[in-house]
């Protein structure tokens, strides 16, 4: 492994930019993400920054079970996120729709139908500590040796 790659791995481990997208949740998960910012949980000590700007995000947190307005907008938003990127869904809604997935509803879960999902945190809502551990866990696997994996992928396509 090159020195540059080692440096990239070390930097990416402690610099994760997060954007949260509410695709029809009830706010419960969103304010648990906000609670992570509080000095009690202090998400920034792990190098996670909540910017809420998709153009500079590494990890997109999705709460909510896909309301009709988001069906065309979410793939667009996903395209605008620079590589390497990952999606972590928070709460039951993106997985199954939770209590809203009943006859007469407008939402259309799961979110994985529309964009690739890396990790999911179940719970209605999950605790802040679970959200932090999920982001850290997913980011470590995804962003480590990202370039090496990309080259391997490209090589296999050419062959």
């Amino acid at each position: 492994m090159s020195i540059l790659q080692q440096l990239k791995n070390a930097v990416r481990q402690r610099s994760i930019h997060v954007c949260y997208v509410n695709t029809g949740s009830c706010n419960g998960c969103d304010i648990e993400i906000l609670a992570c910012l509080a000095p009690k949980y202090d998400i920034e000590q792990y190098g996670i920054y909540v910017h809420n700007n998709p153009r500079e995000a590494d990890v997109i947190l999705i709460t909510g079970g896909m309301s009709p307005q988001w069906i065309d907008k979410l793939p667009d938003l996903w395209d605008r996120v620079p590589e390497p990127k990952a999606v972590v869904t928070i709460g039951n809604c993106p997985i199954s729709g939770c209590v809203f997935n009943r006859p007469g509803t407008l939402i259309d879960p799961p979110v994985s139908k529309y964009i690739p999902v890396t990790a999911a945190v179940p719970g209605c809502p999950p605790r802040p500590s679970e959200i932090i551990s999920a982001i850290l866990g997913a980011a470590d696997i995804l962003f480590k040796d990202y370039e090496v994996h990309q080259k391997e992928k490209e090589g296999s396509v050419k062959k």
Partner: peptide, 15 residues
């Protein structure tokens, strides 16, 4: 508005 419309009242009716 309209980004988080779920139709909760509609789901409630009949339950």
């Amino acid at each position: 508005l309209g980004y988080v419309k779920k139709g909760i009242e509609k789901i409630m009716i009949g339950r």
